[in-house]
Structures are given as structure tokens and as C-alpha cells.
Design a protein around this nucleic acid. Sequence first.
DNA 1: CTATACTTTCAAGAAATATTGAAAATTTAC
DNA 2: GTAAATTTTCAATATTTCTTGAAAGTATAG
Lengths: 174, 174
Amino acid sequence: MKLQEARQQFISSWGAFGTHWGINRTMAQIHALLLTSAEPLTQDDMMEELNISRGNVNMNIRELIHWGLAERILLPGERKEYFTAEKNMWKVIRLIARERKKRELEPMLELLNKLEEVEGDRREKQVKAFTETIQDIKKIGNKVDKTLDLMIRAEENWFLGRVWRLLIDKKTEK
Amino acid sequence: MKLQEARQQFISSWGAFGTHWGINRTMAQIHALLLTSAEPLTQDDMMEELNISRGNVNMNIRELIHWGLAERILLPGERKEYFTAEKNMWKVIRLIARERKKRELEPMLELLNKLEEVEGDRREKQVKAFTETIQDIKKIGNKVDKTLDLMIRAEENWFLGRVWRLLIDKKTEK
DNA sequence: CTATACTTTCAAGAAATATTGAAAATTTAC
DNA sequence: GTAAATTTTCAATATTTCTTGAAAGTATAG
């Protein structure tokens, strides 16, 4: 397979993949484009490569920057802005985890805390079913929350070495 | 807060939460409704509680069943079908992990394997940038894949006891 | 077998979400 | 300062995704 074809396929799939994860197609495609580019790109480059409008590029590149996944670069003597992506994949994962935790997990945990204190006799079937489910979800949610905290703050090697090895390597399995 | 209000809030947020995770709003709401119901419900119950059409209930309850998250129950002497949700939250998480792995992770890994073998001199800047990114993603993807396999097969206690404790408990932190 | 209760399907319509492109804003060069 | 280059905004439009509801399908009782 030729480089250009491979790259096109990667960009297109990364985009589709993104839509399953609440990240919009174009944002994911720009990310894929930058991830596989040896050089920084301008907004015009991206418009051309992805066949999308200037406004679309602009909005999505800014969103990527907001997530910490892309960076604006000013080349000396150049008037245009250039952009690159964070290429360290562990860092990429941590940045995504950080953002999604903030947007999705934390608000949910806040809500669960409120809902836990529902009025009514816990001996009533309906009240019991409700509070038990809420508490179970909360327990798991809190664990995920702490795990993500640890991961987000973690050094790449700590995470790789300590956790992954435990989970995966043959040696450590019983 | 009254039970009915709390339940409404939970259903509505669970639905919104779902949309961020590639699960449609109604499917997530039906799931929330069943999770917090002491008794099995009929399609008509769900139509009324969620104010949605019969067709919508039917399609989404079948999808929940396909994921393993809900179950059809036939009560003796009753002609209507009743439905319940799996209430064990660890099992719920494993079921969701299994389904999403199959739909999202596995196809991506398959693609990455193909893309890794791009033609061209690895000393070329562009080729190098591309293959390095692909390989990095592949490495992480494979690890996630193995971890999910382990988790999907895992007994609740194994997972809870062994992994979570290592990740989270004070004692095991350096 | 027939009538009735119930479930499933799917084309059309509604709602949600993403994209465009042109105008406004900003930055830089001189 | 002004003009040219570039970036940003956002209302209008296009696209994608979800929902409806009525017709077709299936199962059960008698």
C-alpha cells in the first residue's frame, strides 16, 4: 500500500472511530492528519487534504488545542500559523482521559451524590431498587474517577511498568 | 427529593451520558428505567414512562437484549412480554466493554495491522512519521485489547480485589 | 380455523449535529 | 496611519441520526 492511500485510510477510520466516542468526525480527522504528518501544517493545508471549509478547520483545530492535543506553532518569517499534534501516544491518552473525565464522569458523580439521598422508607421495594442501583453505580464511578486521576497524573513509565505489566504479562498471572 | 423526581433525573442524565458514549439516548433511558425498577416492565410501561413510541421502545429494548443488558421475561398467565435489566454493575460494565471492544477496538486494530506495512523507505521523513504513529497506536491498542479480554472474562472479585486495590489503595502507593 | 392481543418492521418525518462561506475581526508589514 | 494577509465568528444550510406510527407479522385462545 502506498503512503498516501494508507494515510487516507487512517484519517478516514480515525474519524469514524471518533464519532463513536463523542468526538466529531472532523476533529478526529484533523487529529489523524497532524499525527501522521512529519511537518507542521497550516489551516489551508488541512482544508485541502480533508476537503473541508476554512471555518470547519478553524473551529476544530481550536478544539484540539483546547484538549491539549494540538499546538500552534509560529515559524520565523512566516505569517501563517502552523499546527502540530502531540505525538506521544501515552500523553495523548492522558489528555483525552482528562477531558472526558471532566466533561462526563464528574458531572455524573455529582448527580449520583444528590440522588442517593432520596426520601422514603428503604424497606419499600421501589426505593430500595433505586438507591441500590445508584449506590452501585457511584461505587464504580468513584473507583474509575480515582483510577483516572492516578493515570492522568502518572508518568508514562509508572503506568506502563507497574499497571500494564501486572495486568498482562504471563509471569504475574496466577 | 422524592423518588419519582430522582428517578426522572437519573433517567434523563443517564440518557445524556449515553449519547457521549455512542449509545443512543433512548436506549440509555430505557436502561436507566429498568435498572431502577423493582419489577419487570412491559413495552407499554416504557412508552408511558418515557413518552416515546412503540417502535422506538421495541427497537431499543432489542438492542439492550443484544448487548446482554436486558432480558425478556414471560410471566405465567400473562400474554405480554416483560423486561428486566442486569442489575450487577460489574457485569454491566463487562457487557458494555465486550460489545464496544468488538465494535470499535477490534476493527481499528485490524486496520492498523494493514497500515503498518506501508511501502516506502523508512528513512523518508513522511514514511517514518506515519509508521511510527501507527505502531505506537497499535502498541497501546493491543494492550487495551488484552486488558479488556482479561476484564471481560474476569470474575468480579478478581478484578476488584487484585487490580483495583493495586491501583487505588493507599497502602500500595509508593 | 378465526379473532384478538401483542410484537416487529421500516419509510417518512423530526430533531440533533456538523459544515459552509461570507462578513467581521485581528494581525502584520510598511 | 493604511492595506493586505490571515484568522475567527456565526447564521444559514446540509447531513446524519433518531423517532414515529401505521401496516405487516406472529402467537395464543377458544
